[in-house]
């Protein structure tokens, strides 16, 4: 039983940063903006979170710093693409490159230093319940934030008026603009929210997952998050499913190897990608529904006529 719990906990840790970054990007894309800078914002969050935690000795300050770092960094993207109407794909890619380089430079003095880890939740009486205790009440704080965030985004996008407005901007910014909606303002807020989420995901890496700073430690997780959003056809619960399928198959293949199942390890290593794509393609087979969920003006720059 213990091993099952351990496996589930490991899966949750692996899935959490993907989920948070993808949920943030989902909101950005729903507003019609494609930000390919997730990896860059994530790594900036990781270095900011680690640095603040290391310098102040408080991982909680680190957590806040990670979120702030991601948000501030995304502002750069917002100014470029929204105010100056630059190409979103190119700007997003450069954001990633800039983030990778800048974080490496900022983190030079943190290399080789052990950092602060965010403590796991520990509620007397509840966490010690066998099996479900540790799963429900004994995980790291960011895990709970990730679940709450997914629920909040679902509610916001589909149950609130502001959410409806945001989606309408993503579908047609010209119509939204004609109706008097402040397109650029909405998009600014969405991009900053996405940046904050990516930063938080990065903070998870350097404060929970592997409490250390090393360059390039996001190791492509931002790109996986981006892919999850598309494959999940812009639906929050599918992003959740996708992140956990990815985590589960990834951890599962490690156990298969440790157990000695004679399948080539290269194949096993690629399984998480394959499995996630296959599952998400299967659940998005309904073409009409997918069309409905795809933000129609995704990636198009918008210059309001004055």
């Amino acid at each position: 039983m213990d091993i099952t719990v351990n496996i589930l906990l490991t899966i949750a840790t692996a899935a959490t940063p993907l989920l948070i970054a993808a949920i943030g990007e989902l909101v950005v894309e729903r507003s019609g903006v494609l930000n390919l800078g997730v990896e860059g914002m994530m790594i900036m969050g990781a270095v900011g979170g680690f640095g603040a935690g290391y310098l102040t000795g408080s991982p909680w300050i680190g957590l806040l710093a990670a979120v702030a770092m991601g948000a501030v960094f995304s502002l750069l993207f917002a100014v470029m693409t929204l105010s100056l109407a630059t190409n979103q794909v190119a700007t997003g890619l450069s954001l990633t490159l800039l983030g990778l380089g800048l974080s490496g430079m900022m983190g030079t003095s943190f290399v080789g230093q052990p950092g602060e880890r965010l403590p796991n939740l520990d509620i007397p009486g509840l966490t010690s319940i066998p099996v479900i205790g540790r799963l429900l009440f004994g995980q790291d704080p960011i895990f709970y934030i990730s679940i709450a965030l997914t629920a909040a985004v679902m509610w916001f996008l589909f149950k609130t008026r502001t959410g409806l407005t945001l989606r309408s901007i993503g579908d047609s910014h010209t119509s939204a603009h004609a109706l008097g909606i402040k397109v650029i303002r909405y998009r600014y807020l969405a991009v900053i929210f996405g940046g904050a989420c990516a930063g938080l995901a990065g903070g998870h890496l350097s404060l929970v997952y592997t409490p250390q700073w090393v360059e390039n430690m996001a190791a492509g997780r931002g790109w996986i998050a981006l892919a999850l959003v598309v494959f999940a056809s812009w639906r929050p619960w599918r992003v959740l499913a996708g992140a956990y399928i990815f985590g589960a198959v990834w951890i599962g293949q490690l156990h298969a190897q440790a157990f000695g199942i004679p399948v080539p390890s290269q194949l096993l290593s690629s399984l998480p990608y394959l499995a996630t794509v296959v599952v998400l393609v299967l659940i998005s087979r309904n073409k009409r529904l997918t069309m409905m969920n795809t933000p129609a003006s995704l990636g198009q720059p918008f210059v309001p006529d004055r």
Partner: peptide
Amino acid sequence: FDPGKEADAAKA
């Protein structure tokens, strides 16, 4: 080089 993967492998 992927700290997260290495941590997951160690746990497994």
